[in-house]
Amino acid sequence: MSASSRWWDFWFRPTSATDLGLARLLFFGLLALFYLPYDFSGWGDVSRAFWQPLWLFDRVHLPLFSVQTLRVMQIVWKIALACAAVGLFTRASIAVVAILGTYLLGLGHNFGQPYHFDALLVLAFWILACSRAGDAWSIDAWRRRPNATAGLPLVHAEYRWPIQLILVAQSLVFFAAGVAKLWTSGSEWVVSDHLALLLQRVQYNISDADPLLSWGSFISMHPWLYHGMALSTVVVETGFPIALFSRRLRVPMVLAGMGLIIGIRALMGPTFEQFLFINLFWVPWQRVVDHLPARVRKPLAVGPLVEEPQ
């Protein structure tokens, strides 16, 4: 296959609308639940003495809004997240999620230091806002049902590229983290006692959240454990893009990536939970639906929502 053919195949090979639609439903649904109790308005009255703006806030002159304004913004954002999940006015909802989400999720990073657990979500918001993610598994699709044949066929190139672009962005996140370690510290990151020291340092209440488990200290006392973990981390991070191209290695690499995120949260503290939701886009949802027992699939088969691929 020529390079050009590979390009078109990678981004635009026709894919079922269910792959994108169901991933959208679950992604925004989980985010809506995750952020429901979170109150962004607290940032509105943090002293300007802490304000160290991100380049985006600096360049675009985004202000620090008042507590009241932030309250209104977050209510609108959370409603938009729910609408994006159920697919109600999907395009507009996801656009609102992207615009307000960029501000609300970015806001905290202007105080002290930028964290890295939600940047990928913002990229995913904008990618989905430009996609046709509401064509299936959405109220919009259900309402259009009588005219469904006027829309796109349920297998189309438009349903592939958003998924691929989100997964490429995620792969570059892991790749960047691996490269940063090798570039900054080289093999010393693996062969020195760095990880052991890191696992001990985080026990001193220095992260945005404390580790869920104290096993880090245990691991730090067993060189074969922490050297093995350090090597695995660098290999998985740097090699993660392989998951995009190798069917055989996709599942192990994605599971290893999830393991890394869970490991960081459990042993070191940083709160990366929402980063895990991106992995929904790896799942071939049409195949999952196809494998559901008929008695489960039948009630779901409302109009175009789970129509078989053409």
Binding site: P114, V168, V173, A177, A180, S192
Partner: peptide, 28 residues
């Protein structure tokens, strides 16, 4: 998306939401 990510990786800079993800990279 790809260019923004690669730019930050290569130049070792951070332009949120893009980043070179440098956390924990420096050996203590």
């Amino acid at each position: 998306v790809v260019g923004g990510s690669l730019y930050d990786i290569v130049t070792r800079q951070e332009h949120w939401p893009f980043s070179n993800y440098p956390m924990f990279a420096r050996v203590h």
